[in-house]
Amino acid sequence: MQTQQLHQTRYSDAELAEFKVIIDTKLAEARRQLQFYLDQLSEQTNSEDGKVRGLDDGVGTMVNEDTHRLASRQQQLIQHLENALLRIDNKVYGICRATGELISPERLRIVPHTTLSIHAKQNR
């Protein structure tokens, strides 16, 4: 298979379907996590306990900023995963944007939204 992969210009429809399942699973989890963070922010904003007074204001602000940062990262991950699904639909998924070669399936299983091979990433 290694020799075949070197000459392969894109992943087969069956391989793309396998990656789609992985991405759909990660996307569902990322959306659940984002909703959790959004619920936390809403709770912090709307509850009296979330409106800490006095010396604790700094701590409350820090927690709020951390939750915003986590929510923002989840939104970015969701966007990257959705973009990966578009690449699957267009049958260009798994092609390194730097080298034009296929990204290893092992890497795609771990980081399914990547657009760079490990070699290209290390050389950046």
Rank of each mutant, 00 (worst) to 15 (best):
V52K: 09
A84K: 00
A28K: 13
R32Q: 15
Q75S: 13
Q33H: 09
A84M: 03
H7C: 05
Q35W: 03
E43T: 11
D39G: 07
Q76N: 08
A30T: 00
E18R: 14
D57Y: 13
L41N: 02
A84L: 03
T9C: 03
Q79H: 10
Q76V: 03
T45K: 15
Q79E: 11
R87E: 09
D57Q: 14
Q40S: 09
D13R: 08
L38N: 12
G60V: 03
M62Y: 12
L86M: 08
R10N: 09
D49I: 13
V63W: 02
L85S: 00
D49A: 15
I23Y: 00
L86R: 12
K51T: 11
Q76M: 04
R73P: 00
D39S: 09
H68N: 10
R87G: 03
L85W: 01
A17W: 07
E43W: 11
L70K: 05
Q35V: 00
K51E: 14
E65M: 12
V63C: 04
H80Y: 08
V63R: 08
S72Y: 06
Q75V: 01
L55C: 05
L55Q: 15
D57I: 15
L85K: 04
L77R: 05
S47K: 11
D13V: 12
R31E: 08
Q79D: 07
I23E: 01
Q33V: 01
D89Q: 10
D89I: 01
E29Q: 14
H68C: 04
I23W: 00
Q8P: 04
V52M: 14
E29D: 15
E48R: 13
I78L: 06
L38W: 02
E43G: 03
N83L: 05
D89P: 00
D13Y: 05
D39V: 01
H68Q: 13
D49P: 04
K26F: 00
A14K: 11
V59D: 12
E15R: 12
S42I: 06
E82T: 07
E18K: 14
M62D: 13
A28D: 08
A84S: 07
R69H: 12
Y11A: 04
K20H: 10
E82C: 04
V63K: 09
L77G: 00
H68W: 01
Q40W: 04
S72L: 09
H68T: 04
S42F: 07
K20V: 05
I22P: 01
L85V: 03
T9N: 08
E15W: 05
D39I: 01
R32P: 02
D66K: 12
R32I: 05
Q76K: 12
E65C: 04
L27G: 02
L55K: 15
D49V: 13
R32M: 09
H7L: 10
